[in-house]
Simulated scan of single mutants.
Amino acid sequence: MVNSAQAWYDHFQAVGLVEKFPGTKVAEPDLKPWGLLITHVWDPAGVLMHFAERPGEDP
């Protein structure tokens, strides 16, 4: 869980994560039906990481 999935996505874009590490993928934040806003990151080995927040919750 993170305070802001959008902030993490923006950070990954700002540091050029995909360009620095070929094979890495970063998905834009997506609000899931169960209420979490999630940014997905796949590392070059295919490991999937979730950066999720509960919108509207105070950190």
Rank of each mutant, 00 (worst) to 15 (best):
P59H: 03
K32F: 08
H50W: 11
E57G: 00
E19D: 15
P29V: 00
F51L: 15
K25T: 12
S4C: 05
K20G: 14
P44I: 08
I38C: 03
H11M: 07
K25F: 07
W8S: 02
E57V: 04
A5F: 01
K25W: 04
G56A: 06
T24P: 03
V41N: 05
E28Q: 12
L36A: 11
D43E: 12
S4T: 03
P22T: 06
H50I: 01
P59V: 04
E19S: 13
W34I: 09
A14I: 00
A45N: 13
V15M: 13
G46K: 08
N3P: 01
L17W: 05
D10Q: 12
A45H: 07
G46D: 07
D43K: 06
E28I: 06
R54M: 04
W34L: 10
V47K: 04
G16E: 06
L17I: 07
P55T: 01
G46F: 08
F12D: 08
F12I: 10
P29F: 00
F51D: 02
F12Y: 14
M1H: 05
V15S: 05
Q13V: 11
K32M: 15
L37C: 05
A27Q: 14
V47T: 15
L17T: 12
V18W: 10
V47W: 02
G16V: 10
P44D: 10
V26H: 02
P44V: 07
D10E: 13
D10T: 12
D58F: 00
W34Y: 15
P29E: 00
T24W: 04
D10I: 08
G16F: 08
W8K: 07
E53Q: 14
Q6I: 10
P55A: 03
H11P: 04
A14W: 05
H11W: 07
R54G: 00
G16P: 09
K25V: 05
H40P: 00
T24A: 15
R54F: 01
R54H: 04
H40Y: 14
Q13D: 01
P22W: 10
K20V: 08
A27P: 01
V26M: 02
V18C: 13
V18L: 09
V2Q: 05
E28G: 10
W42M: 06
G35W: 04
Y9H: 15
Q13M: 11
G46P: 05
E28P: 11
A5H: 02
L31I: 15
E28R: 12
P33R: 00
P55K: 02
W34A: 08
N3S: 13
K32R: 14
G16I: 09
Y9V: 09
F51T: 00
F21D: 07
G56M: 09
E53K: 05
Y9I: 09
Q13F: 03
A7C: 06
V15H: 06
G46V: 09
T24E: 07
P59I: 02
M49V: 09
E19C: 02
Q13K: 14
G23L: 11
P44F: 13
E53M: 14
G23W: 12
D30N: 12
V2F: 03
P44Y: 13
P22E: 06
A27I: 02
A7E: 14
D30Q: 13
F51H: 04
L36Q: 14
K32C: 06
W8F: 13
S4W: 00
V47E: 01
F51S: 02
F21H: 12
A5N: 05
Q13H: 00
L37E: 01
L37G: 01
P22G: 08
F51C: 08
S4I: 01
P55S: 01
G35I: 09
A45D: 15
L17S: 06
